Computed example of a mutant assay.
Amino acid sequence: MARNPWSTAEDEILRDIYSTRSLVTQLHRLPGRTFPGARMRAKRLGLADPGFNAWTPEEDEIIRRAYANGTPIKVAIRDLPGRKPRATISRAERIGLTGKFNGKTGSSFSWVEQAVRNALEDGIPLTVRQLADATGASLPGLNYIVRKLHGNGIYIDGWAPFGNGNAARWMLGNKRDAAKPPAKPSAESCRQWRARRNLRTTGFNPFAIAMQQVAA
């Protein structure tokens, strides 16, 4: 038995939606129902779906707004249920959207700049990789924006250990950058690399043994 059976009223709404061939833009009329679920119910009711692949004027307007604002495809398709990024890019080209954005994520960085500012508003310094996690932007896009804003709205508040070096931690403001720690000597970097390699391959942890000896 279905956990959430369809009501007669919902079936009538679904029939009306399919008569206008606009399930993508009319799904809000069925609160609590998902796009795949609505299509499956329509199939069980014998409703033909000839217009599923036809793009509606509402969808075209969503794409135009996304292009005008430089919104990435992966964000824009949240308002286009059932549509895929590649199909959306193709549709944008068919309706003549061939400007600076071209529907490709990362080809316009205006949204990345605002996302960086929003992520740093909490006053917590973040590295580029942490900014990537917070914003969903790509590392190349973030590196470009960070270089652009460095000294013009953001500064280096400190440094975080990363690999054999250090990664800058960024903050909003125009203060003087924190001094970069000196690089590790090559011998020290090699020693640490060998220690990590041994730990991965053998499970040998000299620090754990040393702690046991101290405890004894």
Results as ranks from 00 to 15, higher is better:
Tyr67Trp: 06
Asn118Leu: 14
Leu149Phe: 08
Gly99Leu: 00
Asp60Ala: 03
Arg64Asp: 01
Ile154His: 10
Pro57Asp: 09
Ile154Tyr: 10
Asn102Ala: 15
Asp133Gly: 10
Ala132Arg: 13
Ile73Ala: 01
Leu47Met: 04
Gly82Val: 11
Thr127Ala: 12
Thr135Lys: 02
Phe52Arg: 12
Pro36Leu: 03
Ile145Leu: 05
Gln130Phe: 02
Arg147Val: 10
Pro36Trp: 03
Arg65Lys: 13
Phe101Glu: 07
Pro81Gln: 09
Thr56Met: 05
Lys74Trp: 10
Arg78Val: 13
Met40Tyr: 15
Lys100Cys: 03
Gly82Pro: 12
Lys148Asn: 12
Thr105Cys: 06
Leu142Asn: 03
Asn69Leu: 11
Ala54Ile: 13
Arg83Ala: 00
Thr135Phe: 01
Gly151Ile: 09
Tyr67Lys: 04
Ile89Thr: 05
Phe35Arg: 15
Asn152Ala: 15
Lys104Val: 10
Pro81Glu: 02
Arg94Cys: 09
Arg86Glu: 15
Ser107Asp: 13
Tyr155Ile: 07
Phe101Ile: 00
Asn143Asp: 13
Arg91Trp: 06
Gly141Cys: 01
Glu121Asn: 15
Lys104Glu: 04
Lys148Val: 09
Glu113Phe: 04
Ser110Arg: 13
Ala137Gln: 11
Trp55Ala: 02
Pro85Ala: 04
Ala48Gln: 09
Gly123Phe: 14
Gln114Pro: 05
Glu59Gln: 09
Gly96Ala: 04
Gly96Val: 01
Arg65Asn: 10
Ala132Cys: 07
Ser138Asn: 08
Tyr67Val: 00
Val112Gln: 08
Gly82Cys: 02
Trp111Asn: 09
Glu61His: 06
Val75Ile: 08
Ser90Lys: 14
Leu97Asp: 04
Lys74Phe: 11
Gly103Thr: 05
Gly103Leu: 01
Pro125Leu: 07
Arg78Glu: 13
Ser138Val: 03
Ala137Ser: 13
Ile95Leu: 12
Ala92Tyr: 00
Arg147Phe: 08
